[in-house]
Design a protein around this nucleic acid. Structure first.
Lengths: 168, 168
DNA sequence: ACAAACTTTCAATATTTACTGAAACTTCAG
DNA sequence: CTGAAGTTTCAGTAAATATTGAAAGTTTGT
């Protein structure tokens, strides 16, 4: 297989995986394109390669920059903005995890706790509802804790020590 | 806050979280409803509570059953099907993780490996593409391994925080 | 064998989400 | 200041997804 062909196939694969995880396809494809490119690309390059509009490129590149996984590169003697993606994939995973945690996990934990606190009845039903809220919080916190340790840890260290962590 | 109100708020919260994770809102709400209910519910109960159509209830309940997190309860003397959700939230997490792994992570790993193998060039560019495929595989495999260890981990430790429910 | 009770399916439709493209805005050089 | 080069915004539209509802299918009791 030619390299270019493999790159294109990768861009498509990544795009369709993204949709399963609530990330929009174009955003994933732009990111994949920047990852496989060995030089920074301009908006026009991206537009042309992915066949999408200028507005779309702009919005998705900005989102990627917000997520901290793509950055502007200033090329001297050029007026255009150029973009490139960090090639450290572990870093990418860390950034995405942090972002999701902040945006999604924390707000949900907050609501579960609020609901737990605010039910003032004492019936068996109320108790079992409170128990459910506790269980949900507990699993969420545990998984969150695992992810947190994961993103803080060095890859190799982590793999060899994970079992220890789980069994305590 | 009245218990019923808290339940409804929980159902909505869970539904909106679901959309961020590529799970459809109704499916999450049906699941949430079954979780907070202390008795099994019929299709009609679900239709009425969530104000959705019979067809929608049927499709989403079936999807939940496929995922192994909801089951049919046969109530003697009744012709209707009744449904209930397992109250063990850790089990829920395990089922969902297994399912995603099978449907999403494994196919992607397979494609990354194929792409890595099939590029036969020897240029610097080709090498850096192969490196990228390796890195992506490596992070995916690592995260996958963590999830795997998590779901296989000693249940006593994990569940020590949870009081088991006794079915009514 | 019939029909009531219940479940399933799926084409049509509604809703949500993403994308386009043109206009407005910004920056910079002369 | 002027206009060329580049960027951003966002209303309108297209595409993707979810939902309905009615018809077809199934099961059960008599």
């Amino acid at each position: 297989m030619k390299l270019e062909e493999a790159k294109i196939k990768y861009i498509h694969t990544w795009g369709s995986l993204a949709t399963h995880w609530g990330v929009n396809k174009t955003m994933a494809q732009v990111h994949a394109l920047l990852l496989v490119s060995n030089t920074p690309l301009s908006s026009d390059d991206i537009m042309e390669t992915l066949k999408i509009s200028r507005g779309n490129v702009n919005m998705n590149v900005r989102a990627l920059i917000d997520w901290g996984i793509v950055r502007k590169e200033l090329i001297s003697g050029e007026r255009k903005d150029y973009f490139s993606a960090d090639k450290d994939i572990w870093e990418l995973f860390k950034q995405i995890t942090k972002e999701r945690k902040r945006r999604e996990i924390e707000p949900v934990l907050k609501i579960l706790e609020e609901l737990h606190e605010s039910v003032d009845e004492n019936s068996v039903e109320a108790e079992s509802f409170k128990k459910l809220m506790e269980d949900l919080s507990s699993v969420t916190t545990t998984v969150n804790g695992i992810l947190e340790k994961t993103i803080k840890a060095d890859e190799h260290w982590l793999l060899s020590n994970f079992t220890k962590y789980i069994k305590k």
